[in-house]
Computed example of a mutant assay.
Amino acid sequence: MPTATIDPAVLEKWDQEYIWHPFTQMQQYQQEKPLIIERGEGSYLYDVYGNKYLDGVSSLWVTVHGHCHPRINRAIIRQLEKVAHSTLLGLSNVPAILLAQRLVQMAPAGLSKVFYSDSGATAVEIAIKMAYQYWQQQGNEPYRHKKKFLCLQLAYHGDTIGAVSVGGIDTFHRIFAPLLFETITAPAPYCYRCPWQQEQSNCRRECLQELEKIIQQHQHELAAMIMEPLVQGAAGLMVGIELVLDRTSKEPYPPEAQIGHRVILAARQKGLILRPLGHVLVLMPVLTMSIDELRQMLTITYESIAQVTGA
Rank of each mutant, 00 (worst) to 15 (best):
H220D: 14
Q200E: 14
R144S: 13
E125A: 05
R268H: 05
P229F: 04
R204A: 05
C68I: 00
S201E: 14
S119R: 07
V280G: 00
Q136I: 13
L298Y: 14
T160P: 00
V57T: 13
E125P: 00
I291S: 08
T309R: 11
V48S: 02
R262L: 09
Q219E: 09
Q16T: 06
R174G: 07
A267T: 05
Q28D: 10
Y143K: 05
P285S: 13
L80F: 12
A84I: 10
C207F: 11
L103I: 15
A188W: 04
V114Q: 10
N202R: 10
Y192W: 11
N93V: 13
I97N: 12
L222R: 00
E199A: 08
R174V: 11
Y132W: 15
M284A: 15
N140S: 13
P70R: 14
I259Y: 07
G240F: 05
Q216S: 06
A234K: 02
A123H: 03
A311N: 13
T5Y: 08
V57S: 04
D15K: 11
A107E: 04
G236E: 07
Q217H: 07
V166W: 00
W61T: 07
A75M: 15
Q31H: 10
T301Q: 05
Y253N: 00
G42W: 04
F172L: 14
M297W: 01
E41I: 08
W61P: 00
K129I: 05
L99G: 04
F23T: 03
H261T: 04
Q219C: 05
T171F: 08
I169T: 01
A235H: 00
P252W: 15
E210C: 01
L99K: 14
L272K: 02
L272W: 01
M238Q: 11
I291H: 12
